[in-house]
């Protein structure tokens, strides 16, 4: 009785260990190219500078029917003059396979600090817009988007 129990216990452990190895093998390549977090991505963009909340307005629908094309716009309060303007507007996401979305380079010639585009969101998550001003300061606005999952997804045939 006892022997049998020990044997089966060992087997179970072997099995567990085996699965762990298998799981590691499956996960490792993914982990090796793990994406930076949203905060890390923003830090890379700002070079570690302080990011203040305000002056940026990120408009994105709170709920979207399909994450393959999510329309959004960003507006930044700025006179857009030679001496006081927005230099760059960057978009980042929290949960796509890659944190970067886009970096827009603007200036006095654009007259306003307003851009719009369509992005992909793999799942419900936070999107962040960061504006870099000509004085070197960074401002941000975040929005949460719920992506509803399509009920009928086409098989790749």
């Amino acid at each position: 009785m006892r022997d049998k129990a020990t044997t089966s216990g060992l087997r179970r452990r072997d099995l567990v260990a085996g699965s762990a190895v298998l799981a590691l093998t499956l996960v490792a390549p993914r982990a090796a190219r793990a994406r930076p977090t949203l905060e890390e991505a923003i830090r890379t963009f700002t070079g570690g500078a302080d990011v203040k909340t305000g002056r940026v307005q990120l408009a994105v629908p709170p709920l979207v029917e399909n994450g393959n094309a999510v329309g959004l716009s960003v507006k930044v309060e700025s006179p857009m003059s030679e001496t006081d303007h927005v230099r760059r507007i960057a978009l980042f996401n929290e949960k796509n396979p890659q944190a970067d979305v886009a970096v827009f380079h603007i200036g006095p010639r654009t007259g306003r600090a307003e851009v719009a585009t369509r992005i992909r969101l793999a799942t419900s998550q936070t999107v962040a817009a960061i504006a870099e001003m000509s004085d070197g300061s960074f401002w941000s606005h975040r929005a949460d988007v719920i992506v509803t999952l399509a009920a009928c997804v086409e098989d790749l045939l």
Binding site: L149, A150, A151, C152
Partner: peptide, 12 residues
């Protein structure tokens, strides 16, 4: 016919 306007998963 029977359920249009209702949701299937997240989709109307």
């Amino acid at each position: 016919d029977a359920r249009s306007g209702e949701r299937l998963g997240g989709s109307v």
